[in-house]
Write a protein that binds this DNA or RNA. Structure first.
Lengths: 341, 341
DNA sequence: CTGAAAGCGCTTACAG
DNA sequence: CTGAAAGCGCTTACAG
């Protein structure tokens, strides 16, 4: 038994395949009688639209691609949920691809958009892959429907949804200062990331404005739990330990607390630790983590809304930057310096 | 400037489009001279294959779908990495879709496979959506290329890659018994899940064989951190607390430890807590978590290898079950009952 | 090794 | 509101 096609449906319903097609895609454009007949024919035959044929003819895949740098990083999950929520309202499918932070892979997956498998893409990778930078440099090939989110991207070629990393980090450090801390260290993210740079800037700015430049110390991490543990190792070897550490993300803060406690350094009594992101585990770690919450769900929703607008109006490509508000979440991993004993 | 097509490439290269097509898909089947000419023409024109046209004609999308119940659950991430690793070797794209544990959504995404957008699917959802159960019940429509992994599925309609949940759970409980624990409680997973049932069975079996039926106590959870905290709440209210708790996954164990410690119950001195899965955080929680490791990367690889075999030989659909080995990982959240003070 | 030709299964102006 | 017809851009037997 062969797979039924639109022609089979049309024959059973006693209409042309043109009409059958319209009954499916624009039910309002055919008579109620026709609509019913076609619906019944679909039921009877078990017809399922061939998406490839539909895409070929209509130039629209009904799907978008989300490019994630690392699917194992819990930070992106909620963002993805926000994207999916908005997409499903418009009957658009969301395909997720993980690049493992590899630019070659990112370029490959972007072929999805170029080859028409997806109508557009949301990049959460924190950078523009080479092929996009080239294109945008005024070369051949049509403009792609792309929105970036979460990691700030230097060149403003596409609309971007993000947060003010500098301002949020600055505010975090200022909170530690308000608790009485002067000797505040920073654990930074992976080198080339714009997010890393932004939060580092925020740290430096806050320290400078408070006249604490002499206390500035930066340990380099890479956003993993392990790198937080390593930073703790370095810190433990120092004779003049900082009284507080501002980590560029929650995973590193959790790793640091874990390593510190194993070495009988109490958090927050001996040292205050602060994270960034407010991932799910932050609330449940011991002690619960003071951090800066990113509006992840909202960010995903906004990214999808922006992409949707592009798809509906391709010429209207304003590379606007939308900055969403962050929130300081105060929990138990930080305390006033006077409580230290 | 219009998007270049294969015809443009053929014209530039001075060959027929049939030859151009072959030069791309089977480079070995054309002369080296032709191959070079076509390659140059592709470079020059910036040609990119229209995937929809290719799929329509060849009946192969070059992509597979992975259906995940919950993208926010870190357990699936590594599995996904294993799948992607194997797929990329065969130049097959991996599309990930999250169903939020909703069977309707699962059915919708399966249309991907039926509509030809994907050549097959790996289901990590722990159940067969209705539409698949129907199909398999001998009805219309062609058989789909499906492999299930991770959550055991009752009906053996498709190949399955998983672990022996009963045996692994039993072994975990037996480890607690070997430490001298008799009063061992269990925190179970969401009700209808086959994984829940398997691990519950393993618990009961181990208790029964050890003659500890009288101590059996089960708190129901749902695999979230919060449900582990709730179970801890119940436990704290009991006058005769168990000396050890075997949790059906790591998240619940972490939630339980967190709530217990907030209430000044020491782990493992006052109570031993054990998880299941060995997620990334298990090693870094405080205290580090004794658990049962699932070979997640390997599981993903095996699932993809099995699907690949199906795609290459569609008729050969043996619904075999492959069980991979688990590993008891002993850390600091459990201790001998004699150490209790 | 190469070309001419048919056709995959839809969608969409166009005409009525 | 409906139908006839063209065509999207490929791939693949078939013949040479």
């Amino acid at each position: 038994m062969k797979k039924p096609t639109l022609n089979d449906v049309a024959r059973i319903a006693g209409v042309s395949n043109a009409t059958a097609s319209r009954a499916i895609s624009k039910p309002g454009s055919v008579s109620p009688k026709t609509r019913d007949a076609v619906e019944k024919a679909i039921q009877k035959s078990g017809y399922i639209k061939n998406q490839a044929a539909s895409t070929l003819k209509s130039k629209s895949a009904g799907a978008i691609l989300v490019l994630v740098p690392d699917i194992e990083n819990t930070f992106f999950s909620t963002l993805l949920s926000g994207i999916e929520k908005m997409a499903s309202r418009e009957k658009i499918s969301v395909l997720i691809a993980s690049s493992n932070d590899d630019e070659r892979t990112e370029n490959e997956y972007l072929q999805y958009v170029r080859s028409g498998r997806a109508d557009g893409a949301i990049l959460l990778t924190g950078r523009l892959p080479q092929s996009l930078r080239d294109k945008a440099a005024g070369s051949n090939g049509p403009a792609l429907n792309i929105v970036t989110a979460s990691g700030t991207i230097a060149k403003r070629l596409y609309p971007h949804i993000g947060i003010d990393d500098v301002g949020a980090a600055k505010r975090g450090v200022e909170y530690l200062q308000a608790l009485g801390h002067k000797d505040i260290a920073h654990v930074s993210g992976p080198e080339l990331s714009s997010v890393t740079l932004g939060r580092l800037d925020g740290y430096h700015l806050a320290m400078k404005e408070a006249g604490l430049v002499e206390f500035q110390r930066v340990f380099s991490g890479d956003f993993t739990i392990e790198s937080g543990e390593r930073a703790a190792g370095n810190l433990l070897n120092m004779s003049d330990r900082p009284t507080a550490v501002f980590c560029a993300n929650d995973e590193m803060a959790i790793g640091m607390i874990s390593a510190l406690r194993r070495n009988h350094v109490r958090v927050p009594q001996d040292i205050s630790i602060m994270g960034f992101d407010d991932i799910h585990f932050a609330e449940h770690s011991i002690p619960s983590l003071t951090t800066i919450r990113q509006p992840r769900l909202h960010m995903g929703e906004q990214a999808m809304i922006t992409l949707l607008a592009m798809l509906n109006n391709p010429s209207n490509v304003e590379p606007e930057v939308t900055l969403l508000d962050t929130e300081l979440v105060i929990r138990k991993s930080t305390s006033s310096i006077r409580h230290s004993d």
